[in-house]
């Protein structure tokens, strides 16, 4: 999804911010502010906070149907819904490969990373954002 995240470090998700009322929206959109009390039509791309806290999480043990491209053999993966405090958004993402539900808890700090979602028929890697356990605070990435 072009324009939903930066592809160079430090990785961030890109939402949109209304230039009139200042509210945020993810995924980014254009045309109309989602706030019904605002007539704004100018939504600017906005890099969102890199870090947030887990609102909830799960771990899937069955391969989802298409259009998900599941690994064969299928490997369970975790999903986390993460709250970004400054933007007031909760955003869902897969958790970094190898990090499972047993490693997670509500309130835990995580940060945006990228990983390969699948490799298409032409051998091109498709990337997606993930939530990864946050490096110790102050640690540079």
């Amino acid at each position: 999804m072009d324009g939903w995240f930066t592809t160079e470090e430090p990785y961030t998700l890109i939402g949109a911010r209304c230039s009139a009322c200042g509210t945020y929206v993810f995924p980014p959109r254009s045309g109309a502010c989602p706030n019904p009390g605002c007539d704004g039509t100018d939504l600017e791309p906005a890099e969102l906070s890199r870090r947030g806290r887990i609102w909830s999480y799960t771990e899937n043990h069955y391969a989802p149907p298409a259009p998900y491209v599941a690994a064969d053999p299928f490997e369970p993966y975790a999903l986390a819904a993460v709250e970004l405090e400054a933007e007031g958004l909760v955003i869902l993402g897969q958790v970094a490969k190898g990090v499972m539900a047993a490693d997670l808890e509500i309130g835990m700090e995580v940060e945006v990373d990228l990983q390969v979602l699948f490799t298409d028929d032409d051998g091109v890697e498709k990337w997606v954002w993930t939530w990864a356990p946050a490096a110790p605070s102050g640690g540079a990435r």
Binding site: S56, N60, Y68, Y77, L79, A81, I106, V128
Partner: peptide, 26 residues
């Protein structure tokens, strides 16, 4: 609906589970 399946593999039970986990924790 297409995006959540394709990008995240977020099936319907995934959403139910996020909610269930909240109930356990909160």
């Amino acid at each position: 609906d297409w995006q959540r399946f394709h990008l995240l593999g977020a099936t319907n039970p995934s959403f139910f589970a996020l909610n269930a986990r909240r109930r356990i924790d909160v």
